[in-house]
Write a protein that binds this DNA or RNA. Structure first.
Lengths: 120, 120
DNA sequence: AATACATATGAACAATTATTCAAATGATAG
DNA sequence: CTATCATTTGAATAATTGTTCATATGTATT
């Protein structure tokens, strides 16, 4: 009855109490870190990465993006919606066609860093 | 019989042939973009983001990380495995405990950019 | 050997998500 | 108004994935 309530957790309060305390203090707010993860989650899909990289070169309409990536227009539109909600792309309408472009210069900086990390 | 094979794609070959061509040429290799997406996918989980941010401060053992994040040791261990496979963290063993630390300085740079983007 | 403890692993489950298909807007031209 | 075309949207499906639970390593101590 007085058995273990904690079966998967360390028995001790912590192996290194000082480290746990100082790291806990310095660790940024949970909500901020959650937002960071959300941003990276948007970048974490190859279709969206390809769309964004395409937009690095030029403003484009949905139809053209679909052709460059060799995917259906619907799939592209769905992903543009995600990018739009994340405020990563902006758009303007001209007649029937909608032109998308990058909303922010930070994006390319982040991507450049990622490229560097991969090729190190 | 001569109906539409393409039901969801633009009828025209492309609305802007020149843009499609030049962007297609300049777009980085698909595999590289896939790797970029894979990297961001690893960053796209709040647990992993919190682990990495904790490691920005100090080398830590699994048990301590679990306590800082208030999660089970098993969950942390599973995520450390993902980070290990992505070569984002390294580890050293000292007796029973395993200490994890950041494998690369690029990580913090990428995160700093992400923080800036969010707070703009 | 046997025990204790930190960590790792495997299977299972729940939740999220990318794409497809079908249909609906929105906008222009006739 | 009708037809056409670019784009959007919604539902459905398939695939991926984070956490939990139970169990297995690995390392020291007795």
């Amino acid at each position: 009855m007085s058995e273990n309530i904690m079966n998967d957790v360390c028995e001790s309060e912590s192996t290194h109490p000082e480290i746990v305390r100082t790291v806990s203090e310095k660790l940024p707010d949970v909500e901020l870190l959650y937002d960071v993860a959300e941003l990276f989650k948007v970048f974490g899909d190859s279709t969206r990465v390809r769309i964004l990289c395409a937009l690095f070169e030029s403003e484009m309409c949905v139809c053209d993006i679909a052709e460059v990536l060799d995917m259906t227009q619907s799939a592209i539109s769905h992903q543009l919606r995600v990018l739009k909600q994340a405020r990563l792309v902006k758009y303007r309408r001209d007649g029937k066609t909608v032109y998308y472009s990058l909303a922010d210069d930070h994006i390319q900086t982040i991507f450049d860093q990622a490229f560097e990390h991969i090729m190190e």
